[in-house]
């Protein structure tokens, strides 16, 4: 295990969540779940982050924003869609301005379903994302450069 998976810094973006999943994401940081045990820090800055955690689905207002945040993260990076809205669009799927799940805009590596997703499953999703992070790193090194990690590397829950 390299340092990479021991120090996942994440950025949490609320795409169009009802705040249910957001509260659960924040709950992970609380003393009860204490994700800092795994070295996880909520940085709030894409340029420092390794893991992009998104709650809520994509709509016309935020698709550019999600794209922008993703582009500003240095590779290797993984995306975790938290909650059913982020995975598929959820109950808002048919709304006139909703595009759907996060994977309509950027490649998603781990899907954490639930309405709202429970902290345990969020933590589990992020920890699973770490092995994907390692894979991407290996792939990056194989390609020789530090170019952008291209295709999404499967995985899911």
């Amino acid at each position: 295990m390299s340092s990479l998976s021991r120090s996942p810094w994440l950025i949490h973006y609320d795409a169009s969540s009802c705040n249910g999943c957001d509260i659960e994401v924040l709950a992970c940081l609380s003393p009860l779940y204490d994700v800092e045990r795994f070295g996880i820090i909520n940085t709030g800055n894409p340029k420092h982050a390794d893991v992009l955690v998104i709650t809520g689905g994509i709509n016309e207002q935020n698709r550019e924003v999600v794209r922008n945040i993703y582009d500003q993260m240095p590779s290797p990076k993984v995306v975790v869609a938290v909650g059913i809205c982020a995975c598929t669009g959820g109950v808002f799927r048919e709304c006139y301005n909703v595009v759907g799940g996060i994977d309509r805009v950027i490649p998603v590596d781990v899907y954490v379903p639930g309405c709202a997703a429970r902290p345990e499953s969020i933590i589990d999703g992020i920890v699973r994302a770490l092995s994907i992070l390692e894979e991407k790193k290996a792939e990056m090194e194989k390609q020789g450069g530090k170019g952008r990690a291209g295709s999404p590397v499967g995985g899911g829950q």
């Binding site: 550019e64 922008n68 500003q72 170019g147």
Partner: peptide, 14 residues
């Protein structure tokens, strides 16, 4: 060699 130029962070706004 190994740099990628990215615009400044603008709170996610393109």
């Amino acid at each position: 060699n190994d740099k990628r130029i990215v615009p400044a962070y603008m709170g996610g706004r393109p």
